[in-house]
């Protein structure tokens, strides 16, 4: 059998498979990059979602207004443009971030903006009587939030957060536009070396599906735990 690295025999499954196995390390590296970007981006998004979501409910107009502006800006300008901006324009202004950091920041800002609406909505959805009961027990505003409102709002946030998380995952291939070799990029390389388009893209479908499903399972687990604390039946939809 030919050991020529660029096999063109698409009809020959064995050779294609060998190429695929040879390329596993680079695909694995790409997968790791995808997972890193997703997890770090989501962590930053979660943080920003809470900060912006709390700000959106402030009594001070200035605080509320700034949150509004940030949210509208990052929801209204595309993720794609934000990433380009961070990667190509910031260095001109004297800031340079490694490519993965650019991607993580772009994901964080974009999905943090969407997430802040989730946080705000869930906090608002806690019945007024709950806050009033906390006032009647002389809790401070911070105690009301920490002991009463947040533990009740959190389970409500999980399903919409899960949707955003999966959207974020599915946006990660955009990273290849700023020179990051994620799993899609690596798989595409592999496709061009093996010429086996169908297998490569099928694998890619499977990879994203498995990742998304793993995230959903994890989030459902979180939701069940959170709901059990509220004495509600665990309504996890797998």
């Amino acid at each position: 059998m030919s050991s020529y690295p660029y096999a063109f025999h698409a009809g020959e499954p064995l050779s294609g498979l060998t190429e695929f196995t040879h390329s596993l390390p680079s695909v694995g590296a790409g997968l790791w990059v995808t997972v890193q970007a997703t997890v770090l981006g989501a962590a930053l998004a979660l943080l920003l979602a809470f900060v912006l979501g709390f700000m959106a409910r402030s009594r001070r107009l200035l605080v509320r207004g700034s949150s509004r502006v940030v949210v509208e800006f990052f929801r209204g300008t595309s993720l794609y443009v934000q990433m380009f901006w961070l990667f190509f324009a910031l260095p001109i202004l004297g800031f340079k971030l490694v490519p993965l950091a650019c991607a993580v920041v772009a994901f964080g800002l974009n999905y943090g903006a969407y997430g802040s609406e989730v946080v705000r909505g869930a906090l608002d959805a806690v019945p007024r009587g709950q806050r009033e009961a906390a006032v009647a027990l002389s809790m401070t505003p911070w105690q009301r939030m920490r002991l009463v409102v947040l533990p009740q709002a959190w389970p409500q946030m999980i399903p919409p957060f899960n949707n955003l998380l999966i959207q974020l995952l599915k946006c990660t291939p955009l990273m290849s536009l700023i020179t990051i070799s994620d799993v899609t990029f690596q798989m595409d390389q592999l496709r061009s070396t093996t010429g086996d388009t169908a297998t490569a893209y099928l694998l890619l479908l499977v990879v994203y599906f498995v990742l998304a499903y793993a995230l959903t399972l994890a989030m459902n687990g979180l939701e069940s735990v959170a709901k059990a604390r509220l004495g509600q039946p665990a309504g996890g939809r797998a």
């Binding site: 009587g129 009961a133 006032v135 027990l137 809790m139 401070t140 002991l147 009740q152």
Partner: peptide, 30 residues
């Protein structure tokens, strides 16, 4: 307002706490 307590028409117990914690959280934290 600590001198005053209130019981509401619709109870407003905290669903995120067990019965005992509903009764202990405010004394502990406040």
């Amino acid at each position: 307002r600590r001198r005053i307590g209130m019981v509401f028409q619709h109870f407003n117990l905290f669903p995120n706490m067990k019965v005992l914690d509903n009764v202990t959280e405010a004394p502990v934290h406040v």
